[in-house]
Every structure is written in C-alpha cells, then in structure tokens.
C-alpha cells in the first residue's frame, strides 16, 4: 500500500460516508453541507489521481456554485434548524435503487479490472486536458455546449416577461 492508496481509500470512505449522511440526515441544511464534504472528497480523489485541473474545477463548480445554489434554495424554504420531523421520503425504494446501482457498478468494475494495475498517466494539466477535449472528444464537448445553450435559451424563454401578454 502506497501513500496514494491510503489517501485514496480514506477519501473514498469520506465521500461515501458523507454521501450516506446526505440522504439519511434529518437536518435539511446539514444535508447540503455533507454534500460539500462529499464533493470535496471526490475532488481530493481527483487530486490523488493526478487530475489537478479536474479537481479544482470540481471544487469551483460543485462546491463553489452548485451546492451553494442548493443551500440557497433550501434556506429560502422553511428549513428548520435542527431535525425536521415531517420529512416523508420513501426510504426503501431509494435504498434499493441507490444501493443496487452502487453495488452493480462496483461489481462490474471489480470484475473488469481484478488485480490488474494501471500506471498513473501524466499529471492532468490544463494543456493535456485541452488537447484531449479538443482532439478526440471534441464532438461530445460541442454537443454538451449545444445542450447548455439550449438550456440557457429555455431558461430565458420561461422567465422572460413580454409586456402586453398576460402571465
């Protein structure tokens, strides 16, 4: 076991543990904060895997923006401080679906790689990532940007208020 392995395992445990807390805690806002921990741990895993840029982008986008937006929305509701007693979530189906997917993926990956080792690639610098994205992955990239653009246009179309028209 190298240091990287230990770090990897520890961060993975943190990520999974915090993720479990997100769905089990009865504190609404704390669930969002656990999500911060979980996503931060994932960023740490990226770091261990030498994907620096992806790690910081994960931090910037997910912790800095997405979770904050989520927390913002939760706080706008009547989220109580302390445990919320009136949470009614169907627990069992969610456990089945989530656990099943997780187990299935884990089994698939473990079965696929067994004990084969892979050399860590070169550090995932911005330059390499750029070459990859605009080289072999340019089509998915462009498709994604079209998707985001349509989402933006849709958001404007939904929210815009045209004078004279009711709504």
């Amino acid at each position: 076991m190298t240091t990287a392995d230990v770090l990897m395992l520890a961060l993975g445990a943190v990520a999974v543990g915090a993720g479990a807390l997100v769905v089990t805690t009865r504190h609404l806002v704390r669930a969002g904060l656990y999500l911060v921990v979980s996503l931060g741990a994932v960023a740490g895993i990226f770091l261990v895997l030498t994907a620096e840029l992806v790690a910081w982008v994960q931090l910037l986008i997910y912790v800095g923006a997405v979770v904050v937006l989520l927390l913002f929305a939760v706080m706008l509701t009547r989220a109580p401080i302390g445990a919320a007693d009136d949470l009614d979530r169907p627990g069992w189906p969610a456990t089945l679906v989530g656990g099943g997917t997780g187990l299935g993926l884990a089994v698939l990956l473990v079965d696929a790689y067994r004990w084969s080792t892979v050399e860590l690639p070169e550090p995932g610098t911005a330059e390499r990532l750029g070459t990859e994205i605009f080289g072999s992955w340019v089509l998915p990239f462009e498709v994604l940007s079209v998707l985001l653009l349509s989402a933006l246009v849709g958001a404007i179309a939904v929210s815009v208020r045209i004078p004279g028209r009711r709504r």
Binding site: L33, V36, W56, V57, L59, L60, V63, G64, A65, V67, V68, L71
Partner: peptide
C-alpha cells in the same frame, strides 16, 4: 476555486 469555497 478555493476563494469560491468562502461562500459556504
């Protein structure tokens, strides 16, 4: 990225 965490 790190400065953005301050929002939390």
């Amino acid at each position: 990225a790190v400065v953005g965490v301050g929002v939390v």
